[in-house]
């Protein structure tokens, strides 16, 4: 018993992470929608305005964190849905790594875009 510390079994850790990201996304997604549809209108988007927002470190880091949590929450959700349907064995391994690869591509492209707006990492 004494040697048991923070030894999450994979199932439990992912379950908790899915909930924690959910709570975070709830707030940030509401903010995102509000800012880019109600404060600024979607059809008035310009490169300059996006850049101006992204050049602030706080906004940049919030958006990158938003991307990371959303990707995790979404991809893990898809993976769970497939496990629930009885995905097992080799198929499961293939699906898992395909999803991981897709996430990496998404994160890479997303951060590249954020950097393009901010003109490099905003410091």
């Amino acid at each position: 018993m004494a040697e048991r510390y923070s030894s999450f079994k994979s199932g439990g850790r992912m379950w908790l992470l899915q909930r924690v990201t959910a709570a975070f996304l709830l707030v940030v997604l509401a903010f995102h929608f509000f800012l880019l549809h109600f404060v600024h209108h979607a059809d008035e988007v310009t490169l300059a305005a996006s850049s101006a927002r992204m050049e602030q470190l706080s906004y940049y880091s919030l958006m990158v964190l938003f991307l990371v949590t959303a990707t995790f929450h979404g991809v893990n959700g898809v993976y769970n849905a497939l496990i629930n349907q009885g995905l097992t064995g080799t198929k499961r391994t293939v699906v898992k790594w395909t999803l991981v690869a897709a996430s990496v591509v998404l994160l890479f492209q997303g951060i590249r875009t954020a950097n393009a707006w901010a003109g490099g990492f905003p410091l």
Partner: peptide
């Protein structure tokens, strides 16, 4: 993300 990526060439 794909659509927003147009910011990179822009």
């Amino acid at each position: 993300i794909a659509v927003l990526s147009t910011a990179i060439p822009a």
